[in-house]
Simulated scan of single mutants.
Amino acid sequence: MIKVHAALCEVTYLSFFENSIKKYISPRAVEWYKSRIEQNNTKEYAPVYWSFWGDMQDQLLQNIPFERLSCESKNLLRVLERKFEGRSYRYMNGDGHSGWVASPVSGKKIGRNQWLQIITNQKLKNRRHSKWNEVKGGFIESSIEMFSGDFSSAVRAEPESRFASKYVE
């Protein structure tokens, strides 16, 4: 999509797009950085480096016709190409899998006692990382966030039901 539109769009729009790409920092960058520092401090594994900026910029800028890039973007792209030569990107995995994400209980009618067990499960509450199981068409994610979304949907679907009588008392 970028290749098609970048080849034909006005220079002012392309310039705005380039600048947006160059300035972008993932909202998760701080979380990734803290996690990496914590992981390296455990000494459980050999220390590793994770890139927190540049992966996405390199991938996106490569899709803009080189002759249409600004001088600054061309220079940045050359630097990023050296930086990521032979490395994998955070935002791309050629052997990867994509699709929907659901919890193990998504779409199932479960009782309030089962919901209470899920909501009060200390293992889920204290889990630092989500567990993902790859399945055909997507992933099953066992995280407190996915379960809370399903619980919210269940309560929304039956607001005057078994949920309210137990938890509103």
Rank of each mutant, 00 (worst) to 15 (best):
L8G: 03
E10H: 09
S15T: 14
S15A: 13
F16R: 14
F17K: 08
E18P: 03
N19W: 00
I21Y: 05
K22P: 00
Y24D: 07
S26P: 01
R28I: 03
R28V: 05
V30C: 05
V30E: 15
Y33M: 13
Y33I: 09
S35G: 15
R36Q: 15
Q39T: 11
Q39C: 12
N40R: 05
N41Y: 07
T42K: 02
E44G: 06
Y45V: 10
Y45W: 09
P47W: 01
V48T: 15
V48G: 10
V48M: 07
W50I: 13
W50F: 13
G54T: 08
G54P: 09
Q57T: 09
D58A: 15
Q59D: 02
L60N: 01
L61E: 01
N63S: 03
N63E: 14
I64L: 00
F66S: 02
E67F: 08
E67Y: 11
L69V: 06
L69H: 06
C71P: 06
E72C: 09
N75V: 05
L76A: 08
V79A: 12
R82Y: 08
R82M: 14
R82I: 12
K83V: 12
K83L: 06
K83C: 11
F84G: 11
G86A: 05
R87M: 12
R87Y: 10
M92D: 12
M92A: 11
G94K: 15
D95Q: 15
S98H: 03
S98T: 10
S98W: 00
G99C: 01
W100C: 02
V101Y: 02
P104F: 04
S106C: 07
S106Q: 04
G107Y: 03
G107V: 08
K109D: 14
L116A: 03
L116T: 02
I118W: 07
I119R: 10
T120G: 02
K123E: 15
K123Q: 14
K123G: 11
L124N: 12
S130I: 03
K131H: 09
W132H: 11
K136V: 12
K136E: 13
K136I: 08
G137S: 03
G137T: 01
G138P: 01
G138E: 01
G138C: 01
F139I: 04
E141A: 07
S142C: 08
S142F: 02
E145H: 02
E145Y: 03
M146S: 12
M146C: 13
G149N: 09
D150Q: 07
S153R: 14
S153M: 13
A154M: 01
R156I: 04
R156E: 11
A157N: 09
A157D: 11
E158Q: 13
E158L: 07
P159I: 04
E160V: 02
S161W: 02
R162F: 02
V168Q: 07
V168L: 12
E169D: 04
E169T: 00
